[in-house]
Amino acid sequence: MSSDLSTYKLNHTMIRVKDPKRSVEFYQFLGLTLVNKLDMPEAKFCNYFLAYTGPKSLQGECKYWTDRNAVLELTHNYGTENDPNYSIVNGNTEPYRGFGHLAISVDNIEAACKRIEDAGYPFQKKLTEGRMKHIAFAKDPDGYWVEIIRRGDEDMGTTTDPSSYRLNHTMLRVKSAEESLKFYQEKLGMTLVRTAENPDNKFNLYFLGYPGANPKIQEGVRNPVAEWEGLLELTWNYGTEKQEGPVYHNGNAEPQGFGHICISVDDIQAACDRFESLKVDFKKRLADGRMNNIAFLLDPDGYWIEVVQNDKLKRTSNV
Rank of each mutant, 00 (worst) to 15 (best):
R166Q: 11
R166N: 13
N168C: 07
N168H: 10
N168L: 02
H169A: 06
H169V: 05
H169D: 04
H169W: 09
T170F: 09
T170G: 05
T170K: 08
M171A: 11
M171H: 06
L172D: 02
R173M: 12
R173C: 09
R173Q: 12
V174K: 01
V174W: 03
V174C: 13
V174T: 09
K175C: 09
K175E: 05
K175G: 05
K175S: 02
S176P: 10
A177G: 04
A177D: 05
A177R: 04
E178W: 09
E178D: 14
E179F: 05
E179Q: 14
S180F: 00
S180G: 07
L181A: 01
K182Y: 11
F183P: 00
F183V: 05
Q185D: 08
E186R: 13
E186F: 03
K187Y: 04
K187I: 15
K187T: 15
L188R: 05
L188A: 01
L188G: 08
G189L: 00
G189H: 10
G189K: 11
G189R: 11
G189F: 11
G189Y: 09
G189T: 11
M190A: 06
M190Q: 07
M190S: 09
T191P: 03
L192F: 00
V193T: 13
V193E: 15
V193I: 15
V193Y: 04
V193H: 00
R194A: 01
R194G: 03
T195L: 10
A196L: 15
E197G: 02
N198A: 03
N198E: 11
N198M: 10
P199C: 04
P199S: 01
P199M: 05
D200Y: 10
N201G: 11
N201S: 15
K202S: 14
K202D: 08
K202M: 15
F203G: 01
F203A: 06
N204Y: 08
L205Y: 10
L205T: 12
L205R: 13
Y206C: 01
Y206V: 04
Y206T: 07
Y206D: 04
Y206G: 08
G209C: 11
G209R: 03
G209P: 02
G209N: 03
G209S: 15
Y210A: 03
Y210K: 08
P211V: 05
A213W: 10
A213Y: 14
A213F: 13
A213P: 02
A213L: 13
A213C: 13
N214G: 06
